[in-house]
Simulated assay, not measured.
Amino acid sequence: MAQNENPYAYTVLQNLKDAGCTDEMAEMFMALQDSGDGEQQRRLLSGHRKHLLEKLHRNQRRIDCLDYLIYQMETKKEE
């Protein structure tokens, strides 16, 4: 059965896409699914999760910098 005819495969692919996985990563994940290599699938997902979390933390630091500047501007304005 083709992946587009398999509701489970479609759901998994959509979830991977929604999680920001590349087409290449999704293809690799599905190939690992077909070969039954769940451990490699978990490693692939964990690596992507780590990447997303690093981006989140990097952006949080940027937001903190902006918040600090806004705070400094408001404090100076009140003087």
Rank of each mutant, 00 (worst) to 15 (best):
Asn6Gly: 07
Glu27Met: 03
Asp37Gln: 14
Gln41Glu: 09
Cys65Lys: 15
Asp34Gln: 15
Met1Phe: 14
Val12Met: 05
Leu45Asp: 00
Ala26Pro: 05
Arg58Glu: 04
Leu13Ile: 07
Tyr68His: 14
Tyr10Gly: 04
Lys76Phe: 04
Leu66Pro: 07
Asn4Lys: 15
Gly38Asn: 12
His57Cys: 11
Thr11Gln: 04
Thr11Val: 11
Thr11His: 01
Tyr8Thr: 05
Thr75His: 08
Tyr68Ala: 07
Leu66Ala: 01
Leu66Arg: 12
Ala9Ser: 02
Asp37Tyr: 10
Gly47Arg: 00
Glu27Pro: 08
Lys76Trp: 10
Leu56Glu: 03
Ile63Asn: 01
Leu52Glu: 06
Leu56Ile: 01
Glu54Thr: 15
Leu13Asn: 06
Glu79Trp: 02
Glu54Trp: 03
Ala19Thr: 00
Met30His: 05
Thr75Arg: 15
Arg58Met: 00
Thr22Leu: 03
Met1His: 12
Tyr71Glu: 08
Gln33Cys: 01
Cys21Arg: 06
Lys55Ala: 08
Arg43Ile: 06
Glu74Thr: 09
Glu74Gly: 10
Leu44Val: 00
Glu27Lys: 05
Gln72Ile: 08
Ala26Ser: 13
Arg49Glu: 08
Ile70Ala: 10
Glu79Gln: 11
Arg49Met: 06
Glu74Ser: 12
Ala31Ile: 05
Ala26Tyr: 02
Asp67Gly: 02
Gly38Trp: 13
Pro7Asn: 03
Ala31His: 09
Cys65Thr: 13
Tyr68Ile: 05
Arg42Lys: 11
Met30Phe: 03
His51Phe: 06
Asp18Thr: 02
Ala26Val: 04
Pro7Ala: 05
Lys50Met: 13
Met1Leu: 14
His51Ser: 11
Asn4Ser: 15
Met28Gly: 01
Asp64Trp: 10
Arg61Val: 11
Arg58Tyr: 12
Gln60Ser: 03
Arg49Pro: 00
His48Pro: 00
Glu78Leu: 09
Tyr8Asn: 02
Lys76His: 14
Arg58Lys: 14
Asp37Arg: 14
Gly20Pro: 00
Glu78Val: 11
Asp64Gly: 03
Met73Ser: 13
Asp34His: 13
Pro7Thr: 06
Thr11Lys: 10
Leu32Phe: 08
Asp67Pro: 09
Gly47His: 07
Tyr10Pro: 04
Cys65Asp: 12
Glu27Leu: 05
Cys65Tyr: 12
Asp64Val: 10
Asp64His: 10
Asn6Cys: 09
Val12Ala: 04
Tyr10Cys: 08
Leu66Ser: 06
Asp64Ser: 12
Gly20Gln: 01
Arg61Lys: 15
Ile70Arg: 04
Ile63Cys: 02
Met30Ile: 00
Arg58His: 10
Ala19Pro: 03
Gln14Met: 06
Met1Ile: 13
Glu78Ala: 14
Thr75Glu: 13
Asn6Lys: 11
Glu54Ile: 15
Ser46Glu: 05
Glu39Phe: 09
Gly36His: 11
Leu66Thr: 03
Cys65Glu: 12
Thr11Phe: 01
Thr11Met: 11
Gly20Trp: 01
Ile63Arg: 08
Leu13Phe: 01
Arg43Glu: 02
Gln41His: 09
Asn6Arg: 12
Ala9Met: 04
Asn59Tyr: 06
Cys21Ser: 11
Met25Phe: 02
Met25Trp: 07
